[in-house]
Design a protein around this nucleic acid. Structure first.
Length: 444
RNA sequence: GUGGAUGUAGCUCAAUGGCGGAGCAGCUGAUUGUGGAUCAGCAGGUUGAGGGUUCGAGCCCCUUCAUCCACCCCA
């Protein structure tokens, strides 16, 4: 064979998804979409490319290094690949004020691109899955987001997880309480954010290293590490710093969320208030959420919160917005690790393959495939002229559950032979009952 | 952006500076109307690329590219 002229390879950090893998991804995507619809979220799609100026508004200094730019030989516009789904949402909300009824509940399940150095579980092209509610200041919206997360993860089959809930206003209040703002406050957030990675001890040490007064550091640790069940957490913080307006507001919001979650029948063990959870430095202004898989301890699979200012980038007045991102790539990885796909989840969409014995029987085999398809059975007609043993072998390797055979004997008698490869069970059925016979064999 | 490791068949990996191999996958047959298991056989290579040292380099040296891991970052 001649050496190929072009080396087949992928751009750095990008992936192909072969059929067996694609089926798993779509299984997850479909469940997630179902749950979004269940909660009344509508799909939104935006272009992969945005005007560069659209993207540059929100992100910080080094952002342009992480954004892929798109060039065209005659390009008059400055274009970039989208970096997340939140900015396109804000643009859409600003752009279609006549067409969008508030509150606007949308989800988007689409790839985004970041020119990061690839690492395990981090790619340059990956899917994000965001659900947001624009224009609803009520904590009911935040509670809906939490409830949505719980339902989605339960339907995917995750046995043990907890949505951690905090409030940006509380973190600000704690900073205020200990006399920090500006950059020192940002550093405080950065340190606390490492809680999962370096633990309480590590955070405490880092606070001291950052030059925070030992007494103050100890007090901060005391406040954020309290572990009381349910709203006991909120009572504790209210006693300690409830006199600060920001704290009082933040605690009040979390109490509202707790009430709504209870009314919505969200199980109490599915969420908790955790003051060590920070969610980066971002644009969050109110309640923030993050979900961790707890058993086994596999890290976080969702992140989100309320960001009341962002939409204002594209619109005179801002709109209060809350939402979450499902870490869909991470979820897909965990589905495999935790073995959460249904037992008979196959590597093929094909339910039955029709084998072909000879040129003489091929028209009947073709007709049989058509009948199966008319009966809504996903059917593959064997397309080559090879020994029946090879055909069986092909079906076996592809994981096709059932093979239908009709040779001259079967044709003469008006019957079809069906074989289930999983256990070798063979049945003979009348040709006019083929669809129900295949269904029965697939079901058993 | 910083540091480390690794590049050999489609895949996973062997090979003291001295004839480039195995397992898996593929193909053919044992078995022309029945898959998996077994057995026999076949095919598959610019050892990432370029340079250097050497009688001789997959192996040593230099350069470069790629991949992986850790850090930085993570809106």
């Amino acid at each position: 064979m001649a050496k190929p002229k072009i080396e087949p390879r992928l751009p750095k950090g990008m992936r192909d998804f072969l059929p067996a893998q694609m089926l798993k991804r779509e299984y997850v995507f479909n469940i997630v979409r179902e749950v979004f619809h269940l909660y009344g979220f509508e799909p939104l799609q935006t272009p992969a490319l945005e005007l560069t100026e659209t993207l540059m508004g929100k992100y910080g200094e080094d952002a342009d290094k992480l954004i892929f730019n798109a060039r065209h030989i005659d390009g008059k516009e400055d274009l970039s690949l989208r970096y997340d789904l939140t900015v396109p949402l804000a643009r859409v909300v600003g752009q279609y004020q006549n067409d969008i009824t508030l509150p606007f509940k949308r989800y988007q399940l689409s790839p985004v691109w970041r020119a990061e150095r690839p690492q395990r579980g981090r790619y340059r092209e990956f899917y994000q899955c965001d659900a947001d509610i624009v224009g609803a200041p009520s904590m009911l919206a935040d509670a809906e987001i939490v409830s949505l997360i719980v339902t989605a993860l339960k339907r995917l089959g995750f046995p043990q997880f907890v949505v951690k809930i905090n409030n940006r206003k509380l973190l600000t209040a704690i900073g205020e309480y200990v006399g920090l703002d500006g950059e020192p406050l940002a550093n405080l957030y950065r340190s606390i954010d490492k809680f999962d990675k370096i633990g309480a001890e590590g955070v405490h040490e880092e606070l001291l290293r950052r030059g925070i007064d030992p007494a103050v550091a100890a007090r901060i640790m005391e406040l954020i590490t309290s572990k009381l069940p349910g709203t006991g957490q909120l009572d504790y913080l209210a006693d300690a710093i409830g006199n600060l307006p920001a704290a009082s507001a933040g605690i009040g919001e979390l109490r509202e969320i707790a009430q709504h979650l209870q009314a919505a029948n969200v199980p109490a063990d599915a969420y908790e208030f955790d003051f060590t959870m920070v969610r980066g430095l971002g644009y969050y202004t109110g309640p923030i959420f993050e979900t961790v898989i707890t058993e086994p301890n596999l890290g976080s699979v969702t992140g989100g919160g309320r960001y009341d200012e962002l939409v204002g980038l594209f619109r005179g007045d801002s709109l209060p917005t809350t939402g979450t991102s499902l870490g869909i790539e991470r979820i897909i990885d965990l589905m495999d690790i935790l073995n959460l796909y249904p037992p008979q989840f196959g590597g093929t969409v094909v339910q039955v393959m029709v084998g072909v014995f000879s040129d003489e029987t091929r028209p009947q085999a073709t007709a049989l495939a058509a009948e199966l398809r008319a009966g809504e059975i996903c059917t593959e007609l064997y397309l080559q002229d090879r020994a029946i043993g090879k055909q069986m072998s092909y079906a076996d390797k592809k994981g096709i559950p059932v093979v239908a055979l009709l040779g001259s004997e079967e044709i003469a008698q008006g019957i079809v032979k069906l074989k289930r490869l999983r256990d070798g069970v063979e049945v003979t059925t009348r040709r006019d009952e083929i669809v129900s016979a295949v269904r029965a064999l697939l079901g058993g």
